[in-house]
Amino acid sequence: MQYAAPQTVEAAIDLLTSHEGAHVLAGGTDLLVQLRSDRVAPEVIVDIKRIDGMKSIRDDSGGFRIGAAVSAAEITEHAGLGAAWPGLVEAAGLIGSTQVQGRATIVGNLCNASPAADTTPALIAAGARIVISGPTGTREIPAEEMTTGPGRTTLAKGELVEAVRLPTRAARSGDAYLRFIPRTEMDIAVVGAGVSLSFDDAGMCQAARVALGAVAPKAVLVADAAAALIGTAIDDAALEQLAQACAAACNPIDDKRGTIEFRTQVAGVLAKRAAVAAKERAFAAQK
């Protein structure tokens, strides 16, 4: 097994293209666990942390561009991100533990393609776009198109994610991410719900995105759930419709972490609570 730390995206792409078993290393919090448990045996490990731009959070025409090797801790400590996207930041703050967050990246979280990844529903709800570079150039896709199932992404051979782009935040907007775990930390989401909302002057919801994690083979954007909120003041009736739309979007499995019944029921509960929190943040930010 070889370790390489290229200085440019092009060099990284070359390594990923020319080796069959090449694996990208950012924080390594998934990769190292997989290595030790013999789940992967890469020929080359391509460390992207020395590539310019991979470790920075930059202004992006009023939005943000987060480099692929930016750690969860750097995100949770970033004041601008905390003000604009508190839901994404709280998702980053839920990964593993404090120590793990010092290494783990949200792009790694996305590319590991676990259905239970905490930051993925938050990214989808935020309308994040993923910047991908590869042998044929650079492309951009919405976060919800990144994964296709457990452990599987739409990345082609030789491609890697360079950055995540978050759009400009409208006034009276807020987001939230909530997950259910049987204990209070050091756990994996049994259900995750990310909600992002924008309101008009009259206090009516004019834009909404709702995403669920751990209830299907991949994190899902639930259009019907968003539709249930748009044009409402997030009242009880809207929340009830939201919960029903979320339950309908669930396609979970029974496993050691939760039953189908439980996941389906709790998805609606969490989505409701996340929507209420997102609304509170939208108006708290206003003051």
């Binding site: 049987p182 204990r183 209070t184 930390e185 756990d187």
Partner: peptide, 29 residues
């Protein structure tokens, strides 16, 4: 009482041989 358990599959194999899914309480619990 609340979360710890040995979970066996139909095949009789232990499904949670680690502290991630064998949930002892953490301090914040």
């Amino acid at each position: 009482a609340l979360n710890e358990e040995y979970i066996y599959g139909e095949d009789g194999r232990l499904q949670n041989p680690g502290f991630l899914d064998y949930r002892i309480p953490v301090a914040s619990d």
